[in-house]
Design a protein around this nucleic acid. Structure first.
Length: 319
DNA sequence: ACTGCGTCCTGGGGGC
DNA sequence: TGCCCCCAGGACGCAG
């Protein structure tokens, strides 16, 4: 399932290969894959046709593409199995089995070609295929609203706007506005510290800090040697800062391992290539020795999700 | 305001 | 071999 590093890889690929093209056609093969779009699939296609793509941005696991001339953007959430694949027409004859939406994009404009000489197939039209086996992902066109803090809406854009449909989603840890040492980070820690709920629940709460899923929550907690059921308010500010730093590190490292798959005009966000699973220290390691102390790792149910943790390094709070 | 839980969906894989 | 069922996941919406 795509977590933030995989989504950032996709964003980077879109920025390099899609920006500067125009949407010339939209084919919705599965209506359900266009969701949270008020006018429905038909209106979705109509709104995109003829638009120039100006930037590729991301906040947490939400992606969006800027559209020239309108206060609207194309939003994409990959869910747990979504992929955005760029196909040159010659290889698009046999569409993917789980193709849900296909967008036809024009050749790249001159400005973009000069700015990004490494772009794939700049001189020819391409398909942007939204492939999604389990259909938890979706596409929508959303209006934009100004950001509350006046900072850019996400990574990959300088514009201080954010799609309305994800305006409630907090910034993620790769966002400079909440980087370590900034006022934004201090404010985030203060907010977390004020919460009595379990720290893992807070890490997973996208309205507090976004982009942390079940896997990276467990990895961050393992690194910080904090049990996920510990109340957030019971942790000191330095401890919370350390935890967030670990979360940042885990995601940054995964990102550096997965960066280049877009070069093949193919983005694997399923983790099938295994580039991010090889470095996991907690997730999925029930019964295996802790890589720090050797104690057998535990698995437990928390919030209807599996949690993996070391019983020795991450002492469980007495309830 | 907060929390807990059900819901959406699909097909791979385990169990019988 | 075949078939059925369960399970995984993020985000949201509702009930308490």
């Amino acid at each position: 399932m795509p977590e933030l590093p995989e989504v950032e890889t996709v964003r980077d690929g879109l920025a390099r290969h899609i920006v500067g093209r125009q949407v010339t056609g939209v084919q919705v093969l599965r209506d359900y894959s266009v969701r949270r779009h008020e006018g429905g699939p038909r209106d979705f296609a109509d709104r995109l046709a003829g638009r120039d793509i100006t930037y590729a941005a991301r906040r947490g696991k939400f992606l969006w593409l800027g559209l020239a001339g309108v206060d609207e953007v194309l939003v994409a959430h990959l869910g747990m199995s979504g992929q955005l694949l760029i196909k040159v027409p010659s290889e698009a004859a046999e569409p993917h089995r789980h193709l849900r939406v296909r967008m036809t994009l024009s050749a790249m404009d001159e400005l973009a070609r000069v700015a990004r000489p490494d772009a794939q197939a700049p001189g020819q039209p391409v398909f942007l295929d939204f492939v999604d086996q389990r259909t938890f992902g979706y596409l929508a066109v959303s209006e934009t609203v100004p950001t509350a803090d006046g900072e850019p809406g996400g990574l990959g854009t300088g514009e201080a706007v954010v799609p309305e449909l994800l305006a409630h989603i907090a910034r993620d840890l790769l966002d400079p506005a909440v980087a370590a040492g900034t006022p934004g980070r201090a404010e985030l820690v203060r907010r977390i510290k004020a919460k009595p709920a379990a720290i893992k629940r807070i890490l997973l709460d996208q309205t507090v800090v976004s982009g942390i899923g079940n896997i990276y929550a467990d990895e961050s907690l393992w690194r910080a040697q904090v049990h996920g059921e510990r109340p957030a308010s019971a942790l000191s500010r330095p401890a919370l800062n350390r935890l967030l730093d670990h979360a940042f590190d885990v995601m940054t490292q995964a990102l550096s391992q997965g960066g280049t798959s877009f070069d093949d005009l193919y983005v694997n966000v399923n983790g099938e290539s295994g580039y991010f699973s090889r470095s996991l220290n907690a997730y999925g390691r029930e019964g295996e020795p802790c890589r720090r102390c050797g104690a057998p790792m535990k698995r437990s149910e928390f919030m209807n999700r599996s949690s993996f943790w070391c019983p020795k390094c991450q002492t469980k709070p007495r309830r």
